[in-house]
Design a protein around this nucleic acid. Structure first.
Lengths: 238, 238
DNA sequence: TACTATACGGAATAGCGTTCCGGTTATGCA
DNA sequence: TGCATAACCGGAACGCTATTCCGTATAGTA
């Protein structure tokens, strides 16, 4: 144990489902999530097994540590670094998160969900075209603050293979609905899919040597303008 | 001779300067390029030294091998793989190309030069706006056929640090001149610099899981449309 | 032909990620 | 309450790649 004499359960609580839409997530190799059902005292604890208390504590520590390490060294921070930061051995890290992508998923799940959930809200508050723009802005924000995430998404490293699928599954439908509305009202062109955009924006959100986040935002904005070009509105095109 | 009976000089010849514009390249840690000055017999050969014949042969083999390996495994192909392919030891690889970026530079130099040199030609043959579009298309083509190059450019790995600078130095002015003309004629907006575009397109050219090159081309086209959006009409910015 | 600067190859070193295993501890039951 | 056992822990061991080092071989020259 390096730091934290983890007497008090690490308060991260990063594991329990947060968003309303987190229901459809298919599975989880680590049984980390969902201790919420522990509330009922009468609960049958026959359920296969519940994470042992120390294990749960370690998972929490790891998530907290990973969050920190990701912010510091990017999503490909050395495994040792994360384990040390959490005060556990690397073996423990790998047991709970066999794939790097599992860890990333767990760390960002909440934020991804929040991003997806923002879509209906935006759709209700703005005209379709604006909603798309706003949502993409929010998505950009998310990606840009996690430098390295976008890179990992496209790294080709098998350790991250599960990531694109996961992101697409959560965010695809969200953006898709906004896009449908916007193309229906002819505010943006119809030949670009949600998937196209999600990937493209992720690419544009990668850190660039001496530029800051502002650069990425400007380029995403440029791409969005391309979405409007030839949609039928201001341009005499077509 | 340890290696392969490379009797015939490897015909790559990838080292001698090829393009007219290759004059302004600043330096070269490896003395690989420019054996041309060997012609004059009266030449003071006090000049430090000329590459020994076997060394030159190895450099050629390495460039050829690297080209192949890059195409196969990406620009971060294992050093051993390249050395084996060239029939030399890794020591030889590192002696001639201490940095991974040196090797990449040497392999793609000619193509980068060709790309830069295409700018004046396009400028003469097309209206400014079209010229920009065409040039970017050519640039896209270059990047897309070198899957992994774009990723390396932004990897943050110190081994590639020299790359962005080199690319920018060669391509920046080329695109810059086209851009100036196009903004002058109000065909595209003026608030995006050559550097901005060069980086953005490089980002968009990164390979995406299950999509092909076509995807990257479409996204670049989308970005270019963004360039046209609000060029003269809605945005009278100076 | 003999000599020397130069280059060669691959062994040695170093830093990762990932797996494995002997020891430890929480949990369920008598 | 005390014990048997499954679950868990930490870190050593392993494999892979990049990078450096140095004794040996060779090209070029007198």
């Amino acid at each position: 144990m390096t730091e934290h004499e983890n007497t008090a359960p690490t308060e991260t609580g990063s594991t329990e489902p947060a968003g309303p839409s987190s229901a459809d997530r298919p599975d989880g190799p680590d049984r980390a999530g969902g201790p919420d059902r522990a509330g009922g005292p009468g609960e049958r604890q026959r359920a296969p097994r519940r994470l042992r208390a120390d294990a749960q504590r370690n998972v929490d520590s790891l998530l907290q540590a990973a969050k920190t390490a990701f912010a510091t060294s990017g999503v490909d921070a050395p495994a040792k670094e994360i384990a040390d930061l959490a005060g556990v051995g690397v073996g423990t890290l790998y047991r709970h998160f066999p794939q790097r992508s599992d860890l990333i998923k767990a760390v960002f799940q909440r934020e991804v969900d929040a991003c997806a959930d923002a879509a209906p809200t935006l759709a209700a508050a703005h005209p379709p075209g604006v909603a798309v723009e706003q949502w993409l802005r929010r998505y950009t924000e998310f990606l840009a603050t996690k430098r390295g995430l976008a890179t990992a998404l496209h790294s080709g490293d098998p350790a991250f293979d599960a990531l694109p699928g996961y992101f697409m599954q959560r965010l695809g439908p969200a953006l898709g609905s906004l896009l449908d509305a916007a193309t229906a009202s002819a505010e943006i062109r119809a030949d670009i899919s949600a998937k196209d955009l999600l990937y493209a924006v992720a690419l544009l959100c990668q850190p660039v040597s001496d530029e800051g986040v502002t650069y990425n935002e400007r380029m995403v904005a440029l791409l969005i303008d391309g979405l409007r070009y030839g949609a039928g509105t201001s341009r005499p095109a077509s």
